[in-house]
Nucleic acid binder design. Structure first.
Length: 818
RNA sequence: GCGGAUGUGGUGGAAUUGGUAGACACGCUAGCCUUAGGAGCUAGUGCCCUCUGGGCGUGAAGGUUCAAGUCCUUUCAUCCGCACCA
């Protein structure tokens, strides 16, 4: 009998599966399709980490189950290879980003293969391949054609370390999420995608997909929809009402309490509103505000600084003269960059008014004391005709007044900003635009796509905010597609979120050089059935790709409005001590080391599955692989013993029933658990099954041949999604034809699960005093009678009358004593 | 501040959804066995006690119930996301 040694079997089966192309997804196959998508990796220089392994192992388990259940499964993999980390890696190692990418992908590929994932490698691609980014560029031009890609001079988040602009989503606490450098503001001409136009769509779409609350709520939060009104105020000297100062408010009901206006320092009207004798203080304030980084603004504990402009506006409903102030607690980028301040009903305005001794008018009466700021609803006061009205009713009432009088309108406002789509870097998709002095920004004609990234000697980013591409004059200088005159190429590249915004669609038709994908194939594969990924991409990749997809749907380029029917996010694996794994701490666990150490990929896969609920952040325990390896050995030994030809014959019927029942129970538990993504309890169900089989073996010695064949066959099939190599090996050793992974998933018979005898718990006053074994469905009176004579129970009943006996069928008797 | 979670043995985690708390593992203890290994097997392992029995026990405090890890109220702690968003 051969010993279980993963090194003998894992590489062998990996080769065999590849030769057979076992995991190929077949276009237009008549079986039901199932698209199991996991986020494709960014091929960094460090190789796969445990987070990847967790994600892809879960994906593989599900894909294998769905395949065995008779689906045409697409479980694909690619590489998201453009972006800063590779560029930085290349600079550090003095190689080209192309070479760095090649090197890193090779590492990733061999690591993924060593895990035995059932991936359709024929469909793999990388985003940096011109044959792929040709279509990323083509899709960008669709946005451009529709006016959803535009250029604007914007104050952007600039990372001085990476020397590039960043999107809002990439800035975390004022720092670049990748390198942790403090982000500065810079004014640069940038490409933007008008994601704000899809704010409502993106919210609406969430109602029709199966996302965890946590993720959906986060997106809703990020989009930040609020309803209110825009109201125009006018400078007291602007009698012609030429120059409105528009504010946004969610509380039109407090309009009568607006006692001053505040403009953000960036507000375009600041200089025109500021009086001569206030210019110096205002300018000084603005300068100071501009020099602050986000972090500094936050670290000042929200101290409400501000300066008076010397001007006054008129409150349109009270006709009162109210001062106009400038303060950085008003954000330039949200709403109109100006607010009406209602200190009695907004805590920030309250704080500001108190600090700068500005008037406060209470307009809503409620439980809160009159001399305090209150944001709660109540009854209107100091509000003219609206007095006595409920504040909730006053909101629409005042909006209609404002609309009637023509100084404002109802308005829905979003926190979401347009997506800054330019990066001043080499290693990205060139933006396929040509700038002509006469025709402005012109799309590169489709037949000239892809605009290939030229090979260059220097790809280090520049300090000027210009892409390194701008130095390559024979690439930059070209002719205008409109007029043929001299023109220049756009030198900014796309962010690394570009290629990942549509990659799943390319798996449906990866080699197409006529279209980004054949519409018939898009129709066949449809929505991704399940998308597994990290929680950290909720407001980046996940939101961006939904935006792209919704746009493509509106362009009739894809058949469904949402890309992913269901989304789940796996938890993070921490180091054994509960801290985050990081290179600097030196506590990173390398999955390849675990495989190479002799435990093998199967044990590692099982350990990952067994670790914790899939969505839970949890520490890695190195010993767990030893445990799952031990389990696989037990499976190996049990199967080998059962194959021994000397063991044959017929055994006791009672034992045969037990073997069969245990098998059906295992099938039920494992099937249900995987379908609910309860991988950890699925593994424990497998372990219980094996433990049970070992006990039965002691009694039966494989005498019930048919039952044992049945049990072992099903056991191997149930293990197959988790530990595909050992399952395939033992399947083959058992004389089965074909791969276990294309065999039909076992089914269970519910009737066979039911045992004739049940254990009934007996309680006295709610406390457990004993158990009795009774026939299933025995009449209540008989069970209670039997429970009363249970020796320990009887002792309690002796001196007391029974008030009540609670009976739960086949489960429990509780005697309540007086 | 807003939004989302999570608190169960020494550890990772189970618990049929209100019905035997701690499944399954890791670790540990004792014993057995062996071509001494990263083995294997058997037994034990929530805490406490006057130990063939009994008491206590799911972050804390109340409550509902014959019965609560599970439901309700209050509270504490930790983690994640957003954050002067008018």
């Amino acid at each position: 009998m051969k010993r279980y040694n993963p090194k003998d079997i894992e590489p062998k089966w990996q080769r065999t599966w590849a030769e057979q192309n076992l995991y190929a997804a077949i276009d237009f196959d008549s079986r039901p399709k199932y698209v199991m998508l996991t986020e494709f990796p960014y091929p960094s220089g460090d190789g796969l980490h445990m987070g990847h392994i967790r994600e892809y192992t879960y994906g593989d388990i599900l894909a294998r189950l769905k395949r065995m259940e008779g689906n045409n499964v697409l479980y694909p993999m690619g590489y998201d290879a453009f972006g800063l980390p590779t560029e930085n890696y290349a600079i550090k190692h003095r190689i080209s980003p192309q070479a760095a990418t090649e090197r890193n992908i090779n590492t990733f590929q061999s690591q993924l293969e060593s895990m035995g994932y059932g991936i359709d490698w024929m469909r793999s691609f990388r985003t940096t391949d011109p044959a792929y980014y040709r279509w990323t560029q083509w899709l960008f031009l669709q946005f451009f054609k529709e006016g959803l890609a535009y250029q604007a001079e914007v104050a952007i988040n600039w990372c001085p370390h990476c020397k590039t602009g960043l999107s809002n989503e990439e800035v975390i606490n004022g720092r670049h999420e990748r390198c942790d450098t403090l982000v500065e503001k810079r004014l640069l001409k940038q490409w933007l995608l008008k994601i704000t136009q899809y704010a409502e769509c993106l919210l609406e779409g969430l109602k029709h997909v199966d996302y965890p609350h946590r993720i959906a709520d986060q997106q809703v939060n990020w989009i930040g929809r609020s309803e209110g009104a825009e109201i125009n105020f006018y400078d007291i000297n602007d009698e012609q009402k030429k120059q409105p100062i528009t504010v946004f408010t969610t509380r039109p009901d407090t309009l009568f309490g607006a006692t001053f206006l505040v403009l953000a320092p960036e507000h375009p009207l600041v200089s025109s509103v500021t009086r001569i004798n206030h210019k110096d203080t205002v300018n000084a304030y603005i300068k100071q505000a501009q020099s602050k980084t986000e972090i500094e603004r936050q670290s000042e504990e929200r101290d409400k600084t501000g300066v008076f402009t010397g001007s006054y506006a008129v409150n349109p409903v009270t006709s009162e003269k109210i001062p106009i102030w400038i303060a950085d607690y008003v954000l330039g980028g949200y709403g109109t960059g100006a607010i009406m301040a209602v200190p009695a009903h907004d805590e920030r305005d309250w704080e500001f008014a108190n600090k700068h001794r500005l008037p406060i008018t209470r307009v809503i009466k409620n439980d809160d004391p009159d001399d305090m700021c209150t944001t709660k609803p109540g009854v209107m006061m100091n509000s003219g005709n609206f007095n006595g009205m409920k504040s909730a009713e006053a909101i629409p009432a005042i909006i209609s007044l404002v609309e009637k009088e023509g100084f404002g309108s109802k308005k829905v406002q979003y926190k979401l900003r347009d997506w800054i789509f330019s990066r001043q870097h080499y290693w990205g998709e060139p933006i396929p635009i040509i700038h002509c002095p006469d025709h402005g920004a012109v799309a590169v004609p489709y037949n000239q796509l892809p605009v290939e990234l030229p090979e260059v000697a220097h790809y280090e980013p520049t300090d000027t905010g210009e892409s390194p591409l701008s130095a390559i004059s024979d690439w930059v200088n070209t002719s205008c597609p409109e007029c043929g005159g001299p023109a220049k190429r756009e030198t900014d590249t796309m962010p690394n979120w570009a290629g990942s915004s549509w990659y799943y669609l390319r798996y449906y038709d990866p080699r197409n050089d006529q279209e980004f994908a054949d519409p018939k194939k898009l129709e066949y594969w449809g929505e991704v059935d399940l998308y597994l990924g990290g929680m950290e991409h909720t407001t980046l990749h996940l939101l961006y790709s939904r935006f792209w997809h919704q746009f493509l749907y509106n362009q009739k380029l894809v058949p469904s409005p949402e890309p992913y029917a269901a989304r789940r996010g796996q938890g993070i694996i921490l180091a054994a001590d509960g801290s985050k794994m990081s290179k600097s701490k030196g506590n990173v666990v390398n999955p390849s080391d675990i495989i190479d150490s002799g435990y093998g990929a199967d044990a590692l896969r099982l350990a990952i599955a067994f670790l914790a609920p899939y969505d839970q952040t949890t520490p890695w325990s190195p010993e767990s692989v030893a445990g799952t390896h031990r389990f696989l050995q037990r499976v190996w030994v049990l199967t080998q013993e059962s194959l021994d030809p000397s063991k044959q014959g017929l055994g006791e019927q009672a034992l045969e029933d037990k073997i069969r029942r245990a098998t059906h129970r295992a099938i039920k538990n494992v099937t249900e658990d995987i379908n609910h993504l309860n991988f950890n309890t699925a593994v424990s169900a497998l372990m219980e099954f094996v433990n049970e089989l070992y006990k039965l073996k002691e009694q039966d010695h494989f005498a019930n041949r048919l039952a044992w064949n049945f049990a072992i066959t099903k056991l191997l099939q149930l293990i197959a999604p988790f530990a595909p190599h050992i399952a395939e090996e033992l399947w083959s050793q058992s004389g089965n034809q074909g791969s276990i992974h294309t065999s039909q998933w076992p089914e269970y018979d519910n009737d066979l699960l039911i045992e004739g005898v049940v254990t009934v718990v007996v309680q006295v006053n709610g406390k457990l005093r004993g158990t009795i074994e009774v026939k299933r469905d025995m009449p209540e009176a008989e069970v209670v009678a039997q429970a009363k004579v249970q020796p320990r129970v009887a002792a309690y009943l002796k001196d007391h009358a029974i008030n009540k006996a609670v009976y739960v069928k086949n489960r429990l008797v509780n005697f309540v004593l007086s």
